[in-house]
């Protein structure tokens, strides 16, 4: 039996004196879509970062078996690089061989121009570029922070297509305020407390 992609036991995270998350037990398998709901400050992004390994838990354990990929909100890129360069370097720094034709393909699938510098991108285009990056890196665990934000109708369609493709080989976690995600979710976790 394969181990779950991510498994947490008694997971807790404290910033300063405030516990943002406490005693969280959950696990995620390949093919699953976990939707995180909750008001601002409930710890959705914190949980995504714990899943990715960017943050260390204050309490409990978290076990990974697979590479994480992260779409932050808003996503970050090097301003002085074009979309193509950003993606090519993302692959190279992950230790992957780079096929530039494949990278341009991924860009045009998302409707993005290859040569334009990212500093001239709109926020919706940056989101598309972040999704293109994930589709190239093909991580085992897709972590998306408010992926629908800044995307237009066509962009959301692309996102949905990409995620159903991803669920064939990976697990997906989406942190969102849109209840429409709940329909496709294999699991929903509502985080409480926070600022609300």
């Amino acid at each position: 039996m394969t181990p779950p992609l991510v498994k947490t036991e008694g997971l807790g995270k404290r910033f300063g004196q405030d516990w943002v998350l406490q005693n969280l037990n959950l696990s995620l398998e390949r093919g699953e879509l976990l939707v995180l709901l909750g008001p601002n400050g409930a710890g959705k992004t914190t949980l995504l970062k714990l899943f990715s390994g960017l943050l260390r838990p204050t309490a409990g354990t978290i076990t990974h078996s697979g590479t994480p990929g992260f779409v932050a909100n808003p996503p970050a890129f090097h301003r002085h690089f074009s979309g193509l360069e950003n993606l090519a370097y993302a692959l190279r720094l992950a230790g992957r061989p780079v096929d530039l034709a494949q990278v341009s393909d991924a860009l045009s699938q998302m409707g993005l121009p290859p040569a334009k510098a990212v500093m001239n991108y709109s926020s919706g285009m940056k989101k598309r570029l972040a999704l293109a990056r994930l589709s190239l890196l093909r991580p085992d665990l897709w972590l998306l922070d408010e992926p629908e934000a800044a995307l237009d109708t066509e962009g959301r369609k692309l996102l949905e297509g990409m995620l159903s493709e991803a669920r064939k080989f990976a697990g997906v976690v989406v942190a969102t305020h849109e209840r429409s995600w709940v329909g496709q979710a294999s699991r929903v976790l509502t985080l409480g407390g926070g600022a609300g």
Binding site: P57, T61, T63, G66, T67
Partner: peptide, 12 residues
């Protein structure tokens, strides 16, 4: 608190 990262780069 502990973090155990098992074969995180296995598929790479």
């Amino acid at each position: 608190s502990q973090v155990s990262v098992t074969s995180r780069s296995g598929a790479q």
